[in-house]
Simulated assay, not measured.
Amino acid sequence: MKRISSIFCVALIGCLLQGCEKKIDLELKTTTPIIVVDGRVTNSSSEGSVVALSYTKTVKSDNSIVPLTGATVTIQEGNGTVYSLPEVSNGVYRNASLTGIVGKTYHLTVVANGQTLTSSSTMPTMVAFDSLVAEDFPGFGKTIKVVTPFYNDPPGYGNQYNLSIIKNGKLIKDVFAYDDLFIDGKKATFPLIYSRKADEFKKGDLIEVVMNCIDHANYKYWFSFSQSSTGSPQAVPDNPISNINGRAIGVFGAVTFQKRSIVIQ
């Protein structure tokens, strides 16, 4: 259902928003470094705001990541306060005190190596992440354990979600992006099916699921990521739909942040 609903959502809404998105057709044989942006403002005081910057040399290569250090990164809240994000580790820029507010728009500016990159995102309404359960599911030729998040999509189309799985403190590389085309006003019960046997859940594993409510530009990016051949949030997807202005790819979003955890029995 995820894939069908997402494809229809992009088809219906994409035509209306075509002027607001940037689809990048990258030359697959290029050796010119490409800046990759992964940035977010959250409404969580424990998460704050973070922007990760890196280079990747080719699209279809080993997708090795080279941190982009020494950049100047700022985020402006609406037309008001401008927050600086200092570099806290190689290529990672963070401001723990910048927490977002639903309905406000945040403007990212990155200055690096003579380039200026910009992006904007408005934080959507937060939909409550009600619960997380572990269930049996057929996979890898047997029955495996998966987790299913439960949340009630509010009436009215336009809610989008990005979910990620953390197993024993390590991020699983699968990307889960959902819209509400077929679940508007209903309870969502999509199991999160991981694709790699190496990620199989075992008894005693601590599984955490992060749910972000995201705007439409972020949804298009993460959905295109979930359909890419790379399958890694730290790699460059094929033909990504980016909301970064400038010679770069990636995404910047003002997102709500919720996390639930469960121990596999």
Rank of each mutant, 00 (worst) to 15 (best):
G39N: 02
T122C: 03
D153R: 07
T125P: 00
G141N: 12
S121W: 00
R94C: 04
L132Y: 03
A112K: 03
S45A: 13
S97D: 13
A112W: 06
E77Y: 00
G103L: 10
V147W: 00
I75W: 02
Y151C: 05
A134K: 02
F140H: 13
I101N: 12
K142S: 15
G156L: 09
N79Y: 05
G141A: 08
M123N: 08
T109H: 04
G70W: 10
S64C: 07
K104I: 05
T81D: 00
F140E: 08
L98G: 02
T105G: 09
A52F: 03
H107N: 15
S89G: 08
L53G: 00
M126G: 10
R94L: 04
V51M: 00
T122E: 02
F150K: 12
G100M: 06
H107M: 07
V59Y: 01
V41S: 03
D136P: 07
N90Q: 14
G80F: 05
A96M: 13
M123T: 03
V146G: 01
D136Q: 14
Y106L: 09
V92R: 13
T58A: 09
V73S: 04
L85F: 12
L98A: 05
G100Q: 05
Y93R: 04
S49Q: 03
I65A: 08
G39A: 10
D130H: 09
S97W: 00
M126I: 05
V146I: 15
G103P: 03
D130K: 11
S45L: 01
F140C: 07
Y151L: 15
L85W: 09
T69S: 14
T122M: 09
V50N: 03
F150H: 15
K145Q: 11
S89H: 07
G39S: 08
S131M: 03
D136A: 14
I144V: 15
S49C: 05
T116M: 12
H107L: 05
V73G: 01
A52R: 02
V92K: 11
S84R: 12
A52K: 07
R94F: 01
P154T: 10
G39E: 02
R94W: 07
D153K: 04
